[in-house]
Amino acid sequence: MSQPTIRVLIAKPGLDGHDRGAKVIARALRDAGMEVIYTGLRQTPEMIAEAALQEDVHVVGLSILSGAHMALVPRVVELLRAQGQGQVHLFVGGIIPDEDLPKLKALGVEDVFGPGASTQTIAARVRQAAEGRAPSPGP
């Protein structure tokens, strides 16, 4: 096996209960041949970071529709780095105002996908990011 299967964590941090988008993305990434760990609703940043660690994922996708992204994303980034997973690629999807995009990217978010983004584009971006990582998920 030259490239290990890409493992992605799809998580919904915060309190909004709309997970349709997260499920559509999970399904699309599955259909693109990835292993998608889906954690369900109302996850804290701590729960997300812990799951990312135990599952040793290449990519974390956060779905946020609540408007709390500027509080939640920095915390997830901070926790991932603190546990030695700074190399994990982070994507954000949901309702994100344009003026926050540069701020999120400055935090290290790879890309942000809003309504209307095609699932093919998202899968392609995720693959590209994940495969930029060393072929072995080596320690």
């Binding site: 998608v36 812990e50 135990q54």
Partner: peptide
């Protein structure tokens, strides 16, 4: 999936109570 080779691993959804316990390790 036998078609795409992908998978959705959803067992953690039911295991959220175990988050934060250093004596537990969940792997999908």
């Amino acid at each position: 999936s036998p078609f795409s080779g992908g998978a959705i691993l959803g067992d953690r959804i039911r295991m959220r109570d175990l988050a934060g316990d250093a004596g537990v390790f969940v792997r999908s």
